Each structure stands twice: as C-alpha cells, then as structure tokens.
Simulated scan of single mutants.
Amino acid sequence: MTLAEAAGVAEATFWHSVAVFLRVGAAMAVLPAFGSQSVPLRIRAVAAIAFTAVVAPAVPPLFAGPPDLPRLVRFLATETLAGLAFGLALRLFVLALQTAGAIAANAISLAQLLGGAQPEPTPAIGHVLVLAGLAIAVSAGLHVRLAEYLVHSYALLPAGGFPDAAAMAGWGSSQVAKAFALAFSLAAPFLILSLLYNLTLGAISKAMPQLMVAFVGAPVITLGGLALFALAAPLMLTIWHEALLAYLADPRGTP
C-alpha cells in the first residue's frame, strides 16, 4: 500500500468514525448509567469515544472520503436524532424504576423522605431502586449489551436517513406505554398493601369512631411498607432487568 492509499484509508476511517460518533455521542448523553448527571462530562465524552471505537468497525462504511457540507449537515441532524431516540428508549427503563418508587412511596407514606437530596428529585425508595437496578445491569455486562444495541440500531434506522415520523411516533408511544406498565406492575404489591390498609382503617374507624385511627395506622403502613420493600425489592429488580434485556435483544418489541 502506497502512502497516498494509506492516507486515503485513514481519511475515510476518520470521517466514518465521526459519523458513528454523532449517533453514539447523542445516545451517550441520555443512556442509563453512562449518561447519568452524576457522571462527569469528561468521563461521558471518553466513554462516547470508547463506544465509537467499538461500534465503528462493525458498521458498514458511511463515507468513502471527505463529505460535502450538505451531506455532513444532513448526517449531523439524522444521526443526532437517531442517537437521542435510541438513548431515550433505554432511559425509559430508569424512569420506570423512578415511577415505581414514587408510586410505592406514596402508597406507604414515604414520598417526602429524601425527595430532593438528589440531582433528580426522587423518593428514597425510587433512588434505591434506580441505584440497585443500574448496579445490577452494569455488573451483568451492560456495556457489552449497549455496544450490540448501537450496532443493531443501524439496521433499524440506516445512517443518513430521516425516520418516518408516524413510525417513530408509534414506536415511541409504545415504549412509553410499556415503561408505565412496567412501573405499575413493579409497584403493584405496594398498591395492594395500601388498599388493604385503607379498607382496614375505614372498618376500624366505622366500628370505633372515637379512636384516632390515623395516629395508630400511620406507623403501621410505614413499617409494613418497609418490610414489604425488603421482601419485594429483589423480585422487582429481577423483573426490571429481564425487561431491559428483552428490549436490548429486540428493540422493535416484536411478539
């Protein structure tokens, strides 16, 4: 290989990597764990470059040489949108844990405990669920799954093409619906406990109107909710992690 040929290959590789970085960098800004606000910006930038180095060789060449300005601008728009779309779809799983924690905390009267102590205001139960879920996902090889997910994204949404608005809207709404369904299913035991508690409290209040049932019942629901959380948290995180892996294996969500 001559020096001129090597320079041409290096130039094509550089522009190909730039195109891949546009999608990977946009996704990295919102991905779970790697895109968290608690992660320093420099660390996120280094992680985006590292993921680009892994994803780029697995993606067919996007540029044979230096692109002209209109094509570069087009790629800047399409790849950024694609990266944000795929990143936000994964971010919904974190929001599902936060929503489940908020529902559970409201059900057992712990919604205000440490609610504003984090960059993203979350009840203590939601914060514990998010930290535990992300720790499980990362320890189980989330970085490998994310690299596969980003490579597969080029088959779902080819580079340089604007996605169909109707198809993207339908896909996005279905992912949001699944996230809320997952959050509700995770918090279902706490809702059942709250329902039973309120029915029991109503029956006691009806039978003994002079008893201040609120003062007696508030510690009971809190203690019972914490005990239920200690028992149910492992199962909740297992269900969440399986749902995350199922989505990463099939982002389209085909039955």
Rank of each mutant, 00 (worst) to 15 (best):
N106L: 12
I108D: 02
L110K: 02
Q112V: 12
L114K: 11
L114P: 00
L114E: 12
L114N: 12
G115P: 00
G115C: 01
G116F: 09
G116Y: 09
A117K: 09
P119Y: 05
E120N: 13
P121R: 13
P121T: 12
P121N: 13
P123Q: 10
A124K: 05
A124T: 11
H127N: 08
H127R: 11
V128W: 06
A132F: 04
L134W: 01
I136S: 12
S139H: 08
S139V: 14
A140K: 06
H143R: 10
H143M: 06
H143L: 07
H143T: 03
A147P: 00
E148W: 10
Y149W: 06
Y149T: 03
V151Q: 04
V151E: 04
H152N: 09
S153N: 07
Y154F: 14
A155E: 09
L156K: 01
L157F: 13
G160F: 08
A165G: 03
A167E: 15
M168D: 05
M168N: 04
G170I: 00
W171A: 15
W171C: 06
G172E: 00
S173T: 08
S174R: 15
S174P: 00
V176Y: 04
V176I: 15
V176W: 05
K178C: 00
A179T: 02
F180H: 02
L182V: 05
F184Y: 07
F184S: 10
S185R: 15
L186F: 04
A187L: 11
F190P: 01
F190Y: 04
F190Q: 03
F190V: 03
I192P: 00
I192F: 12
L193S: 10
L193C: 06
L193H: 06
S194H: 14
S194D: 13
Y197L: 08
Y197H: 15
Y197Q: 11
Y197P: 02
N198S: 14
S205G: 14
K206Y: 09
A207R: 12
L211Y: 08
M212D: 14
V213N: 03
V213E: 03
V216F: 00
V216M: 01
A218G: 03
P219F: 05
P219Y: 06
L223I: 15
G225V: 10
